[in-house]
Amino acid sequence: MSYAIIGFGQIGHALAKAFARKGIEVSVATTRDPESFAADAAAIGPGIIPTTLAEAVKAEIVFLAVRFESHPDVAKALPTWQGKIIVDVTNTYGVSPEELGGQSSSKVVAQAFTGGKLVRGFNHLVAAVLEQDPAVHGGRRVVFLASDDDGAAVEIGALAENLGFSPIQLGGLLEGGLLVQTRGNSWGQLIFKDLVKFD
């Protein structure tokens, strides 16, 4: 399985650190020249590969860690996202519910990625927490996942476990997605809930 992170801000860095901790190779891309962030990637680990957006979107699993407003630009990088899983890590703080047409933000994002399978996840924690080792006090830090595609949700759940997290499935993008999204200037009930699961 091949992985890429689109967006290399604080959340992109946090995700890259999670992959590096487990020695799993992942491409990272922005709209900038890869040379401009190559040193940042190298500082995280040898398996963090700076690349172009055009190369990164060839991965089978793509983490969308850009500003919500930028998701249509990323979606245009491919004519179809058939066979790919997109993990929506965007947040919509400050975006009015009217702009989303009453839908969850992930439903809006999913419509842009034609043919792809979208999973909402890894977005409810701030970057400073997400980048920490998820092994906490003998338990594992929780990440919430929501998707309208059960197979994709299971796939990302397995990846979350490989990265050391404890995934909790919230159901579909509408009901589950709303629990982990911002609405205007308010927060979904599970945003910022830093939970640890003990087996």
Results as ranks from 00 to 15, higher is better:
Met1Pro: 15
Tyr3Cys: 06
Ala4Met: 11
Ala4Glu: 03
Ile6Ser: 05
His13Leu: 10
Ala16Glu: 05
Lys17Ala: 08
Ala18Tyr: 06
Ala20Thr: 13
Gly23Lys: 12
Ser27Ile: 03
Thr30Gln: 06
Ala38Tyr: 09
Asp40Gly: 11
Asp40Ser: 13
Gly47Val: 10
Ile49Cys: 08
Pro50Gly: 06
Thr51His: 04
Thr52Phe: 04
Thr52His: 13
Ala54Asp: 15
Ala54Gly: 10
Ala56Phe: 05
Ala56Tyr: 03
Val57Ala: 02
Glu60Phe: 05
Phe63Thr: 04
Leu64Ala: 00
Leu64Met: 06
Ala65Lys: 10
Arg67Met: 07
Phe68Leu: 07
Ser70Asn: 06
Val74Pro: 01
Leu78Ile: 08
Leu78Trp: 02
Leu78Asp: 01
Leu78Pro: 04
Pro79Gly: 07
Gln82Met: 05
Gly83Phe: 14
Gly83Lys: 08
Thr92His: 00
Val95Gly: 04
Glu98Arg: 15
Glu99Ile: 06
Glu99Gln: 10
Glu99Asn: 08
Leu100His: 08
Gln103Glu: 07
Ser105Ile: 08
Lys107Trp: 05
Val108Phe: 02
Val109Thr: 06
Val109Lys: 00
Thr114Tyr: 00
Thr114Pro: 00
Gly116Ile: 00
Lys117Met: 06
Lys117Glu: 02
Leu118Val: 11
Arg120Leu: 01
Phe122Cys: 06
Phe122Val: 12
Val126Cys: 05
Ala127Phe: 07
Ala127Asp: 12
Ala127Val: 12
Pro134Gln: 01
His137Leu: 12
His137Ser: 14
Gly138Trp: 07
Gly138His: 08
Gly139Thr: 12
Arg140Met: 09
Arg140Pro: 09
Val143Lys: 12
Ala146Met: 13
Ala146Ser: 14
Ser147Asp: 08
Asp148Leu: 07
Asp148Ser: 12
Asp148Lys: 13
Asp150Lys: 10
Ala153Met: 11
Ala153Asn: 14
Val154Met: 08
Glu155Arg: 14
Ile156Ala: 10
Leu159Ile: 14
Glu161Thr: 15
Phe165His: 13
Ser166Lys: 14
Ser166Asp: 11
Pro167Met: 15
Gln169Arg: 15
Gln169Asn: 15
Leu170Cys: 15
Gly176Arg: 11
Gly177Gln: 07
Thr182Met: 15
Gly184His: 10
Gly184Asp: 13
Gly184Val: 07
Trp187Gln: 06
Gln189His: 11
Leu190His: 11
Ile191Asp: 04
Ile191Lys: 05
Leu195Met: 15
Leu195Gln: 14
Phe198Asn: 12
Asp199Leu: 04
